[in-house]
Design a protein around this nucleic acid. Structure first.
Length: 979
DNA sequence: CAAAGCACCCTTTGT
């Protein structure tokens, strides 16, 4: 691999820039000159960007469309022809193992059409199974015809074929007959960092090429096509690319075949060097656009802007059927025209975008830019290229991979395309790994050339074994094959963002309404009287539910019922957000409204559902089973389909329409149900933590929405500082909050006692928060053995540590332990920032509270840094304390414990405390998790350098809640902990 | 200077 140096820059051939990474293949002189010409050699630009063969084939007609399809993936919708195509592929591939007789093909076809596999797609297209079967049956005779001419020595009666292989000597006779002797693989998945390509080969076959002079054997790719028999450049190109991909696994096949399933005709496609090179040049152009989607303007720390895409083509015929036409026009209008790039034909741009106002285009452009910045930032941190660039041992150390595995036991076929595999380490025990149940994994062979054999999900990990549900059956590989499992974190992960943004710009009633509310801030409308929405028969039920609620909660319910557009519910800490949402759903359900219930995380969705279950509100839960709470799984589509053996379209439709309440995550909205169902209300929980484009997703499917959150708690996480500065971490909740009439605040809280509550009231909520009852306000920690403990401590030590008494005292609900004099400095290593002394103190206090009679599950430890959590967990394990939850601030949001110990970690003299502690919202979350006792540890003068912490410390000091630990005071702890 | 979450992916066909 070479880094391009100045001077090597031929813009006619390839759009490269200084600094771009290339891979060269071919002849190299002693003076370092590479020869790449019509005979040999390739140049691959950014070989670590793997581009699919279909993308490249698609870019032949229009490069711009191929780039757009990559950005706006979700915008490409399916069609009936596509579904038939996929099914015919599947049928052919199944016949490969069971035979091509008409009877067998009929049987396979019937099973596929009436099986569960394609039901969702049929639902989406709203076609019936009988029609699909008819279409498919037309093809089957050609399957048999193909088999009889090309399989098993039947080539004798076959017509001659012309095939000239690149390696053939000049005068070799191109006339030949082809015999397929064996099927090596189907849907073989290949990633090639050598050519920068990826793809799946329909059929990999062993082929005998019979010629008059001699017979040749080759393993070749076979590409199936169900459409019109065009033998077009697009089709042939795909085959040529597969001949390149094949080289990752075996020697150059030199050619492949195009098989048209409608006629049974098969055409040879040689992989000539010039064709390959032309296609790789096309690939390089795509790679260039993928890498250079944005560029810095001005000098060093200048701003970034979006780059123009490949030019708009002038061939109207091609545009007529383009699935990206909307995004093509939109991007030109919103982005390129500002850069001075004008289209060849203004009228089509006009037509596609005339419904959009300048404000809409501006919003679209800005969010595209922010998403690109964030994608680039993420890509730089952990691209999937590490899988082939980083040695396995190094990845293993990070915990993102497990190597040296061999397959054990049998491969179980769970359903079509899902195979359960078990792996064992060749070492005695499984190495430590971050891989968890439900994680997406990529399986490769340890040997070079076996990259990306299959992918799937982890179904179980323990000390000795790891089990995965994979998309391919690996039993065919030799038994001693060594495997590596890599955590597949996905690339960028901003597909949903861009898809939703594009949808927001569509010319539809739903999109127009959302644009006016969200972009143009149109005032949300409300009805005047409840009687107009409340059906008579629901009145009693609703009144009953309302009876159990506090005032602001009742207020919230009314607001939602009266809303015509949206409502924002501010759920301050401990105010019963989940209960409120649960009651809201009950009320809407009673009023016969349909509800789409969503949140960012699976666990938040399930928390509400777990409450809802008790009230006999029926719902359908969508999403991957493994990520869903075990008690909720029986309400998932997957489970219901399995239990009821649903294999017909009308039963599936019935299921999809069976419940007025549908629950899923914001990202789960690509489910086929949303192509046809609409809802009266959409509720989004955790809304203040979701970025705008993602939050938008579910809103398209409902006529009104309710966002629940609290923007005083953590905002959406944005890694790119530039994107953050442009406003990417502003949630939709925050954006809409300026419309005060839509906001209701839940101010009555049931979590914290009054002293803990006072803290956040002072810091954040301006005294709005109040305790739900006298009991809540005066509650203290329950330490039944405290007296005993105190006595023992006085016996064994001189118990001069008065601060210890103070900290243990239940009535001191809030304590800040100042480590200034101890001292307790921070340390930083590659794992992150930590503070060992603070960790020791935390563990000491924890065990003391447990000795005083507190249950370990009632204690929670919070730190902003993972490294600190690691050290604390290790120390806890050593002192055999278990069941104490140790977690980051971010993970504790939405939860509580009786006692919370916060370790602030940062303690230095150079003034830099990092970004994490700067955010007052993170601080707010940290100090509002404790019900009865909040203990904070940190160095007062160091922390005081940040404004939000200074404000906190100032207040604590006036309330006499700061206890300065004596110098070397920690030494006594060893003694004390032996008590 | 490091916080967390979600996501199936590559294909299928039409000029």
């Amino acid at each position: 691999m070479k880094r391009l140096s100045p001077g090597f820059c031929n813009r006619d051939l390839l759009p490269v820039e200084v600094g771009d990474i290339i891979h060269l293949e071919g002849e190299c002189d002693s003076d370092g000159t590479w020869t790449i010409d019509g005979e040999s050699g390739y140049l691959i630009l950014y070989p670590d960007i793997l581009i699919s063969s279909t993308s490249i084939a698609n870019s032949i007609r229009c490069l711009r469309r191929a780039v757009l399809s990559e950005k706006f993936k979700v915008c490409d919708r399916g069609s009936l022809q596509m579904l038939i195509g996929t099914m015919l592929h599947d049928i052919f591939q199944t016949a490969v193992t069971s035979g091509f007789t008409q009877e067998n093909l009929q049987e396979i076809a019937f099973k596929k059409v009436h099986g569960p596999k394609y039901l969702k797609e049929m639902y989406e297209l709203n076609v019936n199974q009988i029609k699909i079967m008819q279409e498919i049956e037309e093809y089957l005779p050609s399957f048999t015809k193909w088999a009889s001419s090309f399989l098993h020595k039947s080539h004798v009666c076959q017509q001659d074929m012309q095939l000239k292989l690149p390696s053939d000597v000049n005068k070799e006779d191109p006339i030949c007959k082809i015999e397929v002797t064996d099927f090596v693989d189907i849907e073989e998945n290949i990633w090639s960092p050598r050519y920068g390509l990826k793809g799946k080969i329909d059929v990999t076959a062993s082929v005998k090429i019979h010629r008059r002079s001699k017979t040749a054997f080759k393993v070749m790719p076979l590409e199936l096509k169900t459409g019109r028999e065009t033998n077009s450049i697009e089709h042939r190109s795909q085959v040529v690319l597969y001949t390149l991909l094949s080289q990752e696994r075996r020697s150059d096949p030199e050619a492949g075949f195009l098989l048209y399933l409608k006629s049974g005709n098969m055409y040879p496609v040689p992989g000539n060097h010039m064709d390959r090179r032309e296609l790789l040049k096309l690939r390089n152009q795509l790679a260039f656009y993928f890498v250079h989607g944005i560029k810095k303007i001005g000098s060093e720390n200048g701003q970034t802007e979006l780059s123009p895409l490949p030019a708009i083509i002038t061939d109207k015929q091609t545009c007529k059927y383009c699935s990206q036409i909307h995004n093509c026009a939109l991007y030109n209008r919103a982005v390129e025209q500002d850069l001075g790039v004008l289209p060849p034909d203004m009228s089509f741009i006009e037509m596609q975008t005339q419904h959009l106002k300048p404000s809409h285009l501006k919003y679209f452009g800005l969010w595209c830019l922010m998403c690109s910045l964030e994608a680039q930032c993420k890509e730089g941190k952990k691209g999937r290229r590490n899988i082939w660039l980083m040695p396995a041992a190094e990845r293993e150390r990070d915990g993102s991979c497990v190597g040296n595995l061999i397959r054990t036991g049998k491969v179980e076929t769970v359903s079509e395309g899902r195979y359960l595999h078990h792996f064992q380490s060749t070492h005695d025990t499984m190495p430590a790994t971050n891989l968890m149940q439900g994680d997406r994994v990529l399986v490769s062979g340890q040997e070079k050339g076996l990259l990306a054999l299959s992918c799937g999900y982890v179904s179980e990990v323990n000390q000795t074994k790891i089990s995965c549900l994979l998309d391919r059956n690996l039993a065919k590989l030799p038994e001693d094959t060594l495997f590596i499992l890599d955590h597949e974190e996905g690339i960028g992960g901003l597909d949903a963002h861009l898809g939703n943004l594009s949808k927001l710009m569509e010319n539809s009633a739903e999109s127009e309404k959302l644009r006016s509310l969200i972009i143009d801030f149109h005032k949300p409308q409300f009805l005047q009287h409840l009687s107009s929405v409340l059906p008579l028969e629901a009145k009693d039920t609703v009144a009953n539910i309302l009876k159990g609620l506090n005032k602001p909660q009742k207020q919230a319910m009314k607001r939602v019922l009266l809303s015509k557009d949206y409502t924002l519910i501010v759920g301050m800490p401990g105010t019963g957000k989940t209960t409120t949402i649960c009651n809201l759903v009950r009320i809407l359900y009673a009023c016969k409204f349909s509800v789409l219930l969503t949140s960012y995380t699976h666990s938040a969705v399930d928390n509400i559902l777990l409450k809802l279950v008790k009230f006999k509100v029926g719902f359908l839960r969508l999403g991957r089973s493994q990520k869903i709470h075990p008690d909720i799984r029986k309400f998932t589509e997957e489970e219901i389909c399995k239990v009821n053996a649903i294999t017909s379209l009308c039963h599936l439709e019935e299921l999809y329409n069976s419940q007025p309440v549908v629950a899923t995550t914001c990202m789960g909205i690509n489910h086929p149900i949303f192509t046809r169902r609409r809802f009266d209300f959409c509720i989004v929980d955790e809304a203040s933590q979701i970025s705008q484009p993602v939050c938008l997703g579910p809103l398209f499917y409902a006529s009104r929405f309710v966002l629940v959150g609290d923007h005083q708690q953590l905002p959406p996480l944005v890694q790119s500082a530039e994107a953050r500065d442009l406003g990417m971490n502003e949630s939709l909740f925050k954006r809409l909050e300026q419309n005060k009439e839509a906001v209701v605040q839940l101010t009555v809280q049931y979590r914290m006692n009054s002293k803990i509550m006072a803290l956040t009231n002072k810091l954040v909520y301006e005294g709005k928060l109040e305790c739900g009852s006298e009991k809540v306000g005066t509650a203290t920690v329950n330490l039944p053995n405290l007296k005993d403990l105190k006595l023992k401590m006085e016996l064994f030590t001189d118990y001069s540590e008065t601060w210890l008494k103070d900290v243990l005292e239940p009535s001191n609900a809030v304590c800040f332990l100042n480590t200034e004099k101890v001292p307790a400095p921070e340390t930083a290593d590659k794992g992150g920032v930590s503070n060992v002394m603070e960790a020791k103190l935390v563990v000491f206090l924890t065990s003391l509270f447990i000795k005083a009679g507190c249950k370990s599950c009632d204690v929670g430890i919070i730190a902003p840094y993972r490294q600190q959590l690691k050290i604390i967990s290790e120390l806890l394990a050593k002192s055999s304390v278990s069941n104490v939850e140790v977690n980051t601030v971010d993970k504790y949001q939405g939860r509580d414990k009786s006692i919370i110990i916060v370790s602030f970690v940062r303690s230095n003299t150079d003034g830099n405390l990092g970004d994490l502690l700067k955010d007052w919202r993170r601080l707010n979350v940290a100090i509002t998790r404790a019900k009865h006792k909040l203990i904070m540890l940190g160095c007062v003068p160091a922390l005081g350098r940040y404004l939000c912490l200074e404000t906190l410390l100032c207040y604590l000091s006036t309330e006499n809640m700061i206890f300065t630990l004596p110098a070397g005071g920690h030494e006594g702890l060893v003694l004390a902990s032996s008590v």
